[in-house]
Design a protein around this nucleic acid. Structure first.
Length: 449
RNA sequence: GUGGGCGUAGCUCAGUCGGUAGAGCGCCGCGUUGUGGUCGCGGAUGUCGCGGGUUCGAAUCCCGUCGUUCACCCCA
């Protein structure tokens, strides 16, 4: 099967047997989110530009809405397509604060748009799956653990369809407290510089820390030592403390990060691992505590395929603030590279499990009746388009991946159903026959690289 | 948004020095008209991404554009 196609750069479109993969993943995530009591919502595609651009989000390329019949020189509508689901959600919470029950747990699986240059795994239109919890005034910390666990379960529920994933976790309080503790003049500046560690060599980052971060050689070295710490268990805490920096915020951050790592311990497996990663910073400035990023083994070139964190001040009406914590999974970013490389595809291009053969046009009613009886039992069935030779009707099914062909019995003979993969053909009654469970619906097939 | 590579049949690709387009797979037909796949025989693959330019002549050279991909940037 071919790569995802796009007649417009960055706006991918899938073929039916590719779309099945995305549908399956979305359905699985939704099921897990709902098992955990998250309520589904959908927000409008459009937000006022001042909402989208606040918080210094100027770096995001926003698509702006404009009427086709606008007068020349007329200003745009002041609205743009949302570029993520977190900012619209914060707005939604403020708009509906009087009607929502807090803490409010929601999932949201929707398209988002960014006007950036496309690349593999990076699109102008893409689907994200977000879960967030918000509360009024205060949000208990255990929700930081919960959102990580729920997303981990959702991904784990996909079995081995996706490559192994790593959830890297850090804490803004920890690193800010550390930088403050060593006497850094501008801790937040240090965060943005440290964030470059994955593309610049350590020495270059150290130079930046000294030149732009205003640190001494010794301070820069301490920052790099902190950033090197990575552990799949709470052992990272001792490593941080061995650096002998003291600061109350640092201690809070260590405690919080320990809680997340401990709380997620039971979701660890060979396919999903939670790792404390002290170099993780994330570019967005609204995160105030826990920060997450999801990485997919073997696809490090994609950078993170998901991310999120705790934001204590994203939504506020002036009197009340609505702190939240959430995590987002990049459905398009993850799946389209896998689909495009042929690693994932649907087992068939149509939902039909059965093609009911058509002997001649006069017996179309008979074949239709068979299909209706199958459908009544939940078996997806279609009737052959034309009364071609049965060999061609079988081929019609084979092309689409339909596993069974049904032959209505002629002149009182019993009906027969043929498994076209094995060639086995047996008598069957359309009122009671069902295919093996695996064949009832299209499945997602995984091919090893 | 900046810079580089690539774009030929449904797919993977070849195409020499500029001389008017090929292979494999797949597809269609027939052998076999109510049972596909194997095999045999036959057939069609096409705006050489698109537009313009140079030339007697362009898939080939030049420019632009669109798509794609990589690196920046940024992030899902």
């Amino acid at each position: 099967m071919s790569s995802p196609r796009a007649s417009l750069s960055g706006f991918p479109e899938l073929l039916p047997d590719q779309h099945i993969v995305e549908q399956h993943v979305v359905d699985t995530l939704r099921h897990t989110f709902e098992l955990h009591g998250f309520a589904g919502i959908e927000t409008r595609a459009v937000e006022p530009l001042d909402q989208l651009l606040r918080k210094g989000e100027t770096s995001n390329e926003v698509y702006v809405l404009r009427r086709l019949q606008a007068e020349a020189g007329e200003a745009d509508a002041g609205m743009g397509l949302h570029f993520d689901l977190t900012v619209p959600f914060a707005r939604y919470v403020l708009d509906n604060a009087g009607k929502l029950e807090f803490p409010f747990r929601r999932y949201q699986i929707q398209k988002a748009w960014r006007g950036e240059r496309p690349q593999e795994g990076r699109f102008r239109e893409f689907t994200q799956a977000d879960i967030d919890v918000v509360d009024r005034d205060e949000l208990p910390f255990h929700f930081d653990v919960e959102v990580a666990r729920v997303m981990a379960e959702g991904i784990a529920a996909l079995g081995d369809l996706l490559p192994p994933m790593r959830l890297r976790v850090n804490n803004r309080k920890l690193i800010e407290g550390f930088y403050r503790g060593i006497g850094a003049p501008d801790p937040s500046r240090v965060i943005t510089i440290i964030d470059k560690l994955d593309k610049l060599p350590a020495q270059a980052v150290a130079d930046l820390l000294i030149e732009e971060g205003g640190l001494t050689d010794a301070q820069a070295k301490q920052c790099l030592q902190l950033a090197e710490i990575e552990a799949a268990d709470v052992g990272f805490a001792d490593q941080v403390r061995s650096l002998a920096v003291t600061d109350p915020l640092l201690e809070t951050g260590i405690d919080e990060l320990v809680s997340v790592v401990e709380g997620c311990a039971s979701v660890n497996s060979d396919r999903f691992q939670v790792v404390a990663s002290l170099s993780l910073a994330r570019g967005l400035d609204y995160y105030t505590g826990t920060v997450f990023e999801i990485y997919m083994d073997g696809f490090e070139n994609l950078k993170s395929v998901g991310g999120g964190g705790r934001y204590d001040a994203l939504a506020s009406d002036g009197k009340t603030s609505y702190p939240g914590v959430g995590i987002s999974f990049g459905v398009s970013r993850t799946l389209l590279p896998l689909i495009g490389r042929g690693l994932l595809r649907g087992s068939r291009s149509v939902p039909s499990a059965v093609l009911v053969a058509l002997a001649d046009e006069e017996s179309r009613d008979t074949s239709n009746a068979v299909a209706q009886r199958l459908r009544a039992n939940g078996v997806a069935a279609e009737v052959a388009a034309a009364p071609q030779r049965f060999g061609k009707q079988i081929r019609y099914a084979e092309r689409r991946g339909i596993p069974f062909v049904w032959f209505p019995g002629a002149e009182g003979a019993a009906d027969q159903v043929k498994d076209i993969r094995s060639g086995d053909q047996v008598e069957a009654d359309p009122g009671s026959w069902t295919p093996p469970g695996d064949d009832l619906r299209p499945a997602v097939l995984k091919e090893d690289p």
